[in-house]
Amino acid sequence: MLYWLMKHVLLGPILRLFFQPKIIEGAENIPKDGGAILASNHLAVSDSFFLPLMLSRRVTFPAKIEYFTGTGLKGKLQKWFFSGVGQVPIDRSSASAAQGALDTGVRIVREGKLLGIYPEGTRSPDARLYKGKVGVAWIALESGAPVIPVAMFGTDKANPIGSRMWKPHPIRIKIGKPLDFSRYEGLSGDRFVLRSITDEIMYALMELSGQEYVDVYASKAKEQPAVPEQGKKSDRVPEKKAS
């Protein structure tokens, strides 16, 4: 009920009015039912608001647990807000917690829901596409669900990193064709297979978004912004594997 109110009464109408979000390609690629993984590039916090707004089905995004554990009135309002927009708390503070987050993702998909995930693991610091983490591949193999690439456009202009206020700017979305990894069934413990799948997903995102690809994790790029190599285009691009 809260999700419906946020989408159709409270937040949704405001977002539509000021940002005019639109799916410009591939709406038919979202299944009408059954579990699937929506793997998106990540330009801004608002990505998790605009994509669910434009789909008829509910999308569940993992969100850092700090959004749900605040104290006082502000903490309660924050928890209410993020729950209302369809996000679930994820603890990533340790290896066991990270595994718990992956297990949660598998559970969501097995329940026949749409799971939204950002393979880069964090927002891009400069609107480029960074190396994907293999968690998305593990969830895909454990759940048996297809991975649907999603490219967001304009959210970094509407919601720049560090900004407290959003700025009106058109938001556009492209949805790619589902990627089937059933040929790797039973190989979720093989790191080489997980990397291959993740690279294939990132290749699809690179083609769909038109972003420059950087063969470095975004989290590392944020830690070392002054390293010259971070400002250059990588010679390596993720591979598109043969079916």
Rank of each mutant, 00 (worst) to 15 (best):
Gly144Phe: 03
Arg123Cys: 11
Asn159Ala: 07
Glu185Phe: 08
Phe181Ile: 05
Pro149Asn: 07
Lys131Thr: 00
Lys131Asn: 11
Ile171Thr: 06
Lys167Val: 04
Ala140Asp: 06
Pro119Cys: 01
Ser188Val: 13
Ile161Thr: 09
Lys131Asp: 01
Gly144Pro: 09
Asp180Ser: 03
Ile173Pro: 00
Asp190Asn: 15
Asp126Glu: 00
Tyr118Ser: 04
Lys177Thr: 06
Gly144Ser: 08
Pro149Ile: 07
His169Cys: 01
Pro149Cys: 06
Gly144Ile: 00
Val150Lys: 04
Trp166Val: 14
Ser182Gly: 09
Gly186Lys: 07
Pro146Asn: 03
Leu129Asp: 00
Ala137Arg: 04
Ile139Asn: 09
Val134Ile: 10
Ser182Cys: 07
Asp190Arg: 02
His169Arg: 04
Ser188Tyr: 02
Met165Cys: 06
Gly176Leu: 13
Ala127Asn: 04
Met152Asp: 00
Leu194Ser: 11
Ser124His: 08
Lys157Ala: 11
Thr155Cys: 14
Leu129Arg: 01
Gly176Tyr: 14
Val136Met: 12
Ser196Glu: 15
Phe181Asn: 08
Ile175Tyr: 00
Val136Cys: 05
Pro160Asp: 11
Trp138Lys: 14
Trp138Tyr: 14
Gly135Thr: 15
Phe181Trp: 04
Arg195Phe: 08
Ala127Asp: 04
Arg172Cys: 08
Ile197Arg: 12
Gly135Gln: 12
Val136Pro: 03
Gly135Met: 13
Val136Ser: 15
Met165Asn: 04
Asp180Ala: 07
Val147Phe: 03
Gly135Ser: 11
Phe153Ala: 02
Val150Glu: 05
Thr198Ile: 11
Glu142Met: 15
Ser163Cys: 04
Ala158Thr: 01
Ser143Glu: 07
Val147Trp: 08
Asp190Gly: 02
Arg172Ile: 10
Gly176Pro: 12
Gly189Ser: 10
Ile171Glu: 10
Tyr184Asp: 00
Lys133Asn: 01
Arg164Leu: 11
Pro119Lys: 11
Arg191Cys: 03
Tyr130Phe: 15
Pro146Ile: 05
Leu187Asp: 03
Lys174Phe: 09
Pro170Ser: 09
Pro170Ala: 14
Gly176Phe: 12
Arg164Phe: 14
Phe181His: 06
Lys174Asp: 12
Ile175Met: 01
Ala137Lys: 13
Lys177Phe: 04
Met152Glu: 10
Met152Trp: 08
Gly186Asp: 00
Leu194Val: 14
Lys131Leu: 05
Glu185Met: 04
Ser163Tyr: 09
Tyr118Asp: 12
Asn159Arg: 02
Lys157His: 08
Val136His: 08
Lys174Cys: 03
Tyr184Met: 05
Ala158His: 00
Arg191Asp: 06
Ile175Phe: 04
Pro149Asp: 09
Lys131Tyr: 01
Ser188Leu: 15
Arg191Ile: 11
Arg128Ile: 00
Ala127Thr: 06
Ile197Pro: 04
Tyr130Ser: 09
Arg195Ile: 07
Gly135Phe: 14
